[in-house]
Design a protein around this nucleic acid. Structure first.
Lengths: 118, 118
DNA sequence: CCAATTGTTCAATAACTTTTGAACTAAGGA
DNA sequence: TCCTTAGTTCAAAAGTTATTGAACAATTGG
């Protein structure tokens, strides 16, 4: 049960840019970058949309070659394809992540305002 | 008769990425970068689409803050907003342009096969 | 003034994207 | 085995984007 991913040399610049041109997906990438090395399952992103909608966006990211999804039991472990993207488009991911880091308009994962009831 | 442009601080990362995620627009940016300093009018890009279609794509680029259009007589002189983009998203434009430079799938301006009739 | 050049706007259409809920599959634990 | 958890798939609806042609506006040169 492996999911389809493009090879590194099949990753297309306009497709990657188009896929990153969506606030939800940019927020996913931003969060993956902040947790690099830690594989995350889909439910980590539920702040960003419904389960169905995330399934759609995560599939887009995977099909574009931005993320990798590994099936582990009932989970899909999602990671950034950083090495592949760096090889194909040097500097691109870094500049996108750096720019997204200080974009207040982007939705955020784990950005709950914790209700402190005294 | 000046056309509307966003201020530098109004340029949005997802909008810029989305706008660049189109092969025609990426080809326009790639060509502008290759002729940096030289202001080009719209008809330079007619290889990439019809006059109407280019008007549409060039408006998208301008409204996203990627290009600047200056009215000079009946012409619109188009330039890349490199300094503004570099200030807002350091490294992004460079990596996009570098990556687009070796993308054989992108359409090209001035890519006519010249008919040499002997 | 007249005609040519440069580019925009408009309306129509086609094509794609996003979002939703309901139904589904597959694995794991009690 | 039965239930739960994790995620996908499907079809429908809504929204957005790209492309076209015809008509329009503005400037320049003869």
């Amino acid at each position: 049960m492996t999911l389809p991913h493009p090879n590194t040399d099949q990753i297309s610049l306009p497709i990657v840019l188009g896929v990153l041109g969506d606030p939800t997906r940019l927020a996913i990438v931003r969060y993956l970058a902040s947790k690099e090395g830690v594989p995350l399952n889909c439910s980590q992103f539920l702040d960003l949309g419904s389960k169905t909608n995330l399934s759609y966006h995560l599939a887009k990211l995977r099909e574009a070659g931005v993320t990798r999804a590994e099936v582990v039991g009932t989970n899909r472990m999602i990671t950034l394809r950083r090495a592949d993207l760096d090889a194909r488009f040097p500097g691109l991911l870094d500049s996108v992540i750096a720019a997204s880091a200080d974009d207040p308009a982007l939705p955020a994962v784990g950005g709950h305002d914790i209700e402190v009831t005294v």
